[in-house]
Simulated scan of single mutants.
Amino acid sequence: HYVACFYDHLIKTKVTTARKGMPPIFPVVLYSGSRRWTAREDIYRMIRPEPPGFLCVYQPHLRYYLVDESRFSEEELARRDTPLSGVFGVENASKDLQALQLAIDRLVASIRAHPEKSRLDEVITRWLNRHLKRLEAGVELDRVNSLVEDKAMLAENLETLVERERQKSRQEGRQEGQRLTAINLLKLGMLTEEQISQTTGLPLAEVKALQSGQPH
């Protein structure tokens, strides 16, 4: 569809004509989804049943080149050391904030070493801002105009976010421990709800809710 529309666009905008001919195309699919890519890479492979010999020549062959980010390991991306492999590394590390921080550091280093540093820095900074917003990571890069020049500001924001996530995990673990203790005390039936609230530090309303969920 994209190939046909592109050729149609070239004709409608008079970039070329049917008589002059069409330029060659290299169709690329860049896939960053979490599930494995299973679509056929040539439309001909979707034709079933296999057509008889005299029909084969008339069947469409539209093939694309697949770049599946999830198939690249972190080690392989690090070996390639290009801005594009850096972008892949950031996307693959998005669920782990510490890994994300390391991936961004590698991305910044590859941009700094590239001959088109200024242009890449501008484009990738805008992309990273949108990417982090999609992740709802809580990092705003509106004041960061350059990953290379404002790296310290970005690192500070990411470090703050990592620490916030650590505190959240510790708090969730502590609350879960308090709930388990309260449940065990309720099962013993030796303390009142008020006493359990004071002992565990849980709000009385939460202790009452746990009590109502206990079998009698």
Rank of each mutant, 00 (worst) to 15 (best):
L97I: 07
R119K: 09
I25W: 00
R134M: 13
G173E: 07
I47M: 07
T82M: 11
T192P: 01
L158H: 00
L210S: 04
E194L: 03
G213F: 01
V28Y: 12
S94W: 02
E176M: 05
R45P: 02
S212D: 15
E163W: 08
K12Y: 08
K151S: 13
L66H: 05
A109M: 11
E140S: 12
E206D: 15
A155L: 07
F88R: 02
R19Y: 06
I183E: 14
Y65P: 00
E41G: 14
Q178I: 02
Q198T: 15
L186K: 10
Y2P: 02
P27C: 07
S32L: 07
A137P: 04
P115Q: 05
W37T: 09
G201Y: 03
N184M: 11
D81W: 10
W37E: 14
S197A: 15
V207K: 05
E116Q: 15
Q178W: 02
K95P: 00
Q211L: 10
V57M: 12
P23N: 08
Y44F: 10
T160D: 15
V148C: 08
K133N: 07
R179K: 15
N129H: 14
V207R: 01
R174Q: 13
K117H: 10
R174I: 06
R36L: 10
R179N: 10
R63L: 06
L185W: 04
L185K: 02
W127V: 02
D42N: 09
A18M: 11
T38F: 01
S212N: 13
L10H: 02
A182C: 10
A39P: 03
S146E: 10
R112N: 07
P23R: 08
V144E: 04
L135E: 01
L128C: 07
L210R: 09
E193I: 01
E156T: 14
K168Q: 10
H9R: 13
G189K: 09
V148G: 00
Q167I: 03
E165S: 03
I111M: 06
Y64W: 12
L84S: 02
Q214Y: 13
E91K: 04
Q171Y: 07
A78I: 04
A182L: 09
L210Q: 06
